[in-house]
């Protein structure tokens, strides 16, 4: 299973890296530049993409729109530090497959990944 994390904060990416350190059967890329992240997302075939909402140059909404434009088939999950109703509503309206609110704990993140992993292996059978 191929996973991509795009978040402009290196600290957050380091945290996610630590969370998945022991799950060696996953292939995970971490990008902190959203533009470079987009190129990678379009060129490689990811199953699951995690997008930070607030990023400079290209925010999570714009990023998602570009993915949809290019018929990207990945599951897309929003990571958001904003807890206000307005932003949450906007995320809902943008049809993200999943939303995770920060602070993101290992349990929530790993459970989410496991859920899609199980789904994929069932399909595979």
């Amino acid at each position: 299973m191929k996973i991509l994390f795009v978040d402009d904060s290196m600290d957050n990416l380091n945290l996610y890296k630590l969370y998945f350190k022991k799950l060696t059967d996953l292939e995970i890329d971490f990008m902190h530049d959203p533009e470079e992240g987009l190129t990678k997302a379009l060129n490689e075939n990811y199953d699951l993409i995690f997008l930070d909402i607030q990023m400079p140059k290209l925010d999570g909404f714009q990023f998602k729109a570009k993915l949809v434009e290019s018929d990207c088939s990945a599951i897309i999950c929003a990571l958001t530090g904003f807890n206000d109703d307005e932003t949450l509503e906007k995320i809902k309206l943008s049809n993200f497959n999943e939303i995770l609110k920060k602070p993101i704990l290992k349990k929530n993140l790993v459970e989410l990944v496991e859920k899609y992993k199980a789904g994929m292996s069932n399909e595979g059978k």
């Binding site: 600290d11 957050n12 945290l15 630590l18 607030q54 920060k102 602070p103 993101i104 704990l105 290992k106």
Partner: peptide, 30 residues
């Protein structure tokens, strides 16, 4: 509020996994 949360997220996330971590080297890193 957004900027202050970034380091807080790291603190919360790491202290949360410390309890289930057995490797002392990792705990020190966290």
């Amino acid at each position: 509020s957004h900027d202050l949360r970034t380091p807080l997220n790291t603190i919360l996330g790491l202290s949360n996994i410390i309890s289930e971590e057995d490797d002392v080297k990792d705990i020190k890193e966290y």
